[in-house]
């Protein structure tokens, strides 16, 4: 699915002395099989923005388009099935006695048949590598396991766009790697993925395009290489290292991901 946001504006506490304009006309899009990375400082509007992607928040101005159709014309339940939103700390919403029941909750509400529900739960748990946890209580799991179960609950809806708000925050490095692998798998099967993170090193490894938000506006959007080399304050360690070398007169190009950067730098060491 192609999800497009056009000139989205959002104001918190409008008409009061505490009015805050959180989004000031944000436009961006994500297409099938693409990972759009959204980065920005705290308070830049990232979380507010993602809540507009399935109209959990209504914009004060602008439009959300789902395959060129105005999202406000779709049924809310339909929209939320197609655009799956994983909040920050989604494990806070786990509630059922077993992992299986928790993941089955949303597809059951869609009115699917038991066999279909079973298939979806199995597939989603397998995708996040949590099949072995299906009979456990979600509350007895570790933070990383809970996170994966919560994400499986959204995947069980069969979303065409998956929006993840800081999905790796609080996870150990191994769980982070697993989650990045999951994002690549979903992308490769045609899901559109929006990944919000403040960890630029991590987002650099998986995003096809990058958007930098600043004070509720798009400061930059484009390929990781374009965006990171032009915005050194958001650059991952790989880009900062290469940029420092390029500045001294060497031309190493503009690698972004860890492996290509290591290869370029290793080439220098060999002469």
């Amino acid at each position: 699915m192609r999800l497009e946001l056009r000139h989205i504006r959002h104001v918190y506490s409008p008409g009061t002395p505490f009015q805050v304009e959180a989004l000031r006309g944000v436009s961006l899009s994500v297409g099938p099989g693409e990972v759009l990375g959204i980065i920005g400082g705290t308070g830049s509007g990232k979380s507010t923005l993602v809540q507009h992607m399935n109209l959990l928040l209504e914009p004060a101005g602008g439009k959300v388009l789902v395959d060129a159709v105005d999202a406000t014309t779709l049924k809310k339940s339909e929209l939320r099935r197609r655009v799956g939103l994983v909040f920050q700390f989604p494990e806070a919403a786990l509630f059922a006695p077993t992992v299986w029941e928790d993941v089955a909750f949303a597809p059951r509400r869609l009115g699917l048949e038991e066999a279909e529900i079973g298939d979806r739960v199995r597939e989603s748990l397998a995708l996040v590598g949590a099949d072995h946890l299906k009979d456990r209580s979600p509350f007895a799991l570790s933070g990383g396991e809970q996170r994966r179960v919560a994400i499986a609950g959204v995947l069980a809806m069969g979303p065409e766009v998956l929006v993840l708000d800081e999905p790796t925050s609080g996870l150990d490095p191994a769980s982070r790697q697993d989650l990045l692998r999951l994002i690549r798998t979903l992308r490769d099967t045609g899901t559109s993925v929006v990944l919000v993170s403040h960890d630029t090193d991590e987002i650099a490894e998986v995003a096809d395009r990058i958007c930098i938000l600043e004070k509720g506006e798009v400061r930059a959007i484009g390929s990781p290489s374009e965006v990171f080399y032009a915005n050194p304050d958001f650059a991952p360690a790989t880009v900062s290292t290469v940029a420092a070398l390029n500045e001294t007169g060497w031309d190493i190009g503009h690698p972004v991901r860890f492996r290509e950067t290591l290869r370029a730098l290793a080439g220098l060491m060999e002469g």
Partner: peptide, 20 residues
């Protein structure tokens, strides 16, 4: 810092004479 690493790479690279 990335600058530390860049300096170290420069220092070790046989190409360092090419740079200005």
């Amino acid at each position: 810092t990335p600058e530390d690493l860049a300096r170290e790479i420069q220092h070790r690279s046989p190409r360092r004479t090419e740079a200005r």
